[in-house]
């Protein structure tokens, strides 16, 4: 069965760590990092990349538009 796999690219320097994407993600792919970015925010990152299904919900709710989403079918 073909499965859909996704991947997110997060511009961590522009992320403000609001956590809205983390609670929106249906597969718990995203999490806030322990490290901080140049602004001092705990940025969002793909903690569990294998779970991503490329639904783009995180990017749709991101107030700062820092998330880019890719998706492909894998056999």
């Amino acid at each position: 069965m073909a499965k859909v796999k996704g991947a997110v690219v997060i511009d961590t320097e522009k992320c403000k760590g609001c956590e809205v994407c983390v609670v929106t993600c249906p597969t718990q792919t995203l999490a806030l990092s322990h490290e901080v970015n140049g602004k001092g925010y705990n940025y969002s990152y793909s903690a569990n990349p294998e779970a991503c299904i490329g639904c783009a919900n995180c990017a749709v709710v991101c107030p700062d538009g820092v998330i880019t989403v890719y998706k492909m079918k894998v056999e």
Partner: peptide
């Protein structure tokens, strides 16, 4: 080619 969402 796999892009589904990017910033406008």
């Amino acid at each position: 080619e796999n892009l589904v969402y990017r910033k406008s």
